[in-house]
Design a protein around this nucleic acid. Structure first.
Lengths: 355, 355
DNA sequence: TTGAAAGCGGTACCAG
DNA sequence: CTGGTACCGCTTTCAA
């Protein structure tokens, strides 16, 4: 701290009495510098607490060491673990994560894509495959590898890693039907631009109509999902459709509120009403009754996404990869079946998510 | 896409027929450029999908527009919402978040501090006040504003925003004592370098010893917290100390597993055993029995941290701010008290966290 | 209102 | 093995 300015390669060079160039090589290609000199340079750097300037490095060199990660939400741990995994795997390759959160706002998404691109990232990982046209245009024009995550079904920009949401919806619906539930409802946080949730909903409807059941009643709002919202939506649902006997929740946290609400209303779960969630949050297996839900292989998505990013940076070609998911059958749907198995068998499903 | 190279200010300038710096000014100081020209420049940028290069901008200009955010974990939504809030508030000021996750590894922390500093951030926000000496040295040498989050009690680098963990521990212990619990245990994920958890534990012990009770039995592991770990630790605890009648869990997810385990063991909660958590995760109010826990004002921490960052960037001085927290009294500790109130009153506590 | 030119801190290609 | 020297793309005086 004797010097008020941040040390640069030049200050190190001056201190050691060599050229800037040599110092740079001492970092980038150590074996092209005499060990003794290298040692002195290292010492000087340590002493001055030198930290390389990546702005300069990135501007000059060819490669930048950032990867932009754009998610739609962080609050409800939906994507927190994804970001966590990505960060860890990329860091192992000395890649820094620049994080952005659109909060499901398309305008914000365009803005963030631009902001992230302005750092000239080596790649961009982004949640979803439904983006505002301008965002897609920017992404394509930038010529950066883009890895879309969580959804893979539909037009993809470049590379995608995700799960088959429609198949998940089918499995949810089919499971309820098999367990004898007949009047299904879909509840939760749902945004117009959350095509993943819409695909799951479509899957549920596919299953019910295949079973010859009526429409799936829905009660949704474009607000962040949490138990209070779940309980409120349940209340509103029951008020105008009191004969519903199964609720598909768009997320586990919504389901938590739904279960709390049903308890307060004195409805028995799974006897009177069945409940199924999506996500398999940590608490789900600890509730009483324990929540039946769908567990996407989050870790796999993170790992595959990281691998895809690295591969693309490394010159590999675009690809589409699906991760697995599992129906976690627990107590909230543990009702005795009332329909013949033959009928249930007629319902299409794809439990392995292999498309 | 007629041009294979990314557009630069120069390409825009060439296209419009002006100098580079006119284009630059059109962005940075629009009113110093003739509206008509400005219009043409805008059009060219739009057409070419121009995205400014912040590496160049940051290198040249004085201010950088990144804020480094260093957390210890993301998985269990412990800090996810914090990051979420920070990101949103900073973005409003056109500041980008560069995220790093130490996973409670001190070596990693040093490495990440260095990595983040290499982007010459306008400020750094970091979880905790206990950092490896080298990290502190780097941070101080860099002369960047540093905002430490979640903990404020102890030596601080610069500015800090957090809650009083010791007071929280005292309140947890006192609450259990008041409810008549006598043999307390502390369970959960606990790392040596997680001084926040250690402070809460110390607070619990302070409360029990003030009440004249014996030592708090502890059963911890330096692993990520989750329900399975909670249930396992509970099992191990009961095995060698079966008379424990209250469990302080280091996080709500641990408590979920503890409750599940107690249920399986046939112990009544809150009758036989009381359970209290920390964090007030979303599911906590939906469990049966609902979990008594402590809710830190997460949103306030995020907001205050963002405000502190902005203020420091803007030339404001260092400061220390405490956020509030609340004991959420629910069912898992709803046992009738067995001790005279006078005694309970003797236990120090500071429920408002004002230090 | 606009343009020319000097950096910002590195990297990379040369020559020595 | 080491040093000289053009840039990288943008910001910022200083003139015009």
């Amino acid at each position: 701290m004797t010097d008020r300015t941040t040390p640069t390669l030049a200050s190190i060079a001056a201190r050691v009495g060599v050229s800037v160039n040599t110092v740079s090589r001492a970092l980038r290609a150590p074996n092209t510098v005499r060990p003794e000199l290298r040692q002195k340079i290292r010492a000087a750097m340590d002493e001055l607490n030198y930290v390389p300037n990546r702005l300069a490095g990135g501007l000059s060199g060819t490669r930048s060491d950032v990867v932009g990660v754009i998610v739609t939400s962080l609050h409800h741990s939906e994507f927190a673990s994804l970001v966590d995994t990505l960060q860890a795997e990329l860091l192992a390759q000395d890649l820094q994560v620049m994080l952005a959160n659109t909060r499901y706002d398309p305008d914000e998404e365009v803005r963030l894509v631009r902001a992230v691109l302005s750092w000239r990232p080596a790649a961009i990982a982004i949640v979803g495959i439904d983006h505002p046209p301008k965002a897609v245009e920017l992404l394509k024009a930038a010529g950066v590898p883009v890895v879309e995550m969580w959804d893979v079904d539909g037009p993809v920009i470049d590379t995608a890693v995700g799960i088959d949401h429609r198949a998940i919806g089918r499995a949810q619906g089919q499971h309820l039907v098999e367990r004898g539930y007949r009047r299904l409802a879909f509840l939760g946080s749902l945004r117009d631009n959350d095509s993943r949730a819409h695909k799951r909903l479509a899957g549920v409807e596919e299953a019910t109509s295949a079973a010859g059941l009526g429409h799936v009643v829905r009660r949704t709002e474009p607000l962040p999902g949490n138990p209070d919202l779940g309980e409120r939506l349940l209340g509103e649902l029951i008020e105008r459709q009191s004969d519903v006997d199964a609720v598909v929740c768009n997320s586990d946290v919504i389901a938590y509120g739904v279960l709390r609400g049903l308890r307060r209303l004195g409805r028995d779960v799974p006897g009177d009403v069945g409940v199924i969630g999506f996500g398999d949050s940590e608490a789900s297996s600890c509730l009483t009754p324990a929540l039946t839900t769908v567990r996407p292989d989050r870790e796999a998505i993170g790992r595959l996404a990281a691998a895809a990013i690295l591969s693309r940076i490394d010159g590999g070609g675009p690809e589409i990869r699906r991760a697995d998911w599992r129906l976690m059958t627990r107590e909230t749907t543990a009702r005795q079946s009332r329909i013949p198995l033959a009928m249930a068998a007629a319902i299409p499903a794809d439990p392995l998510g292999k498309g």
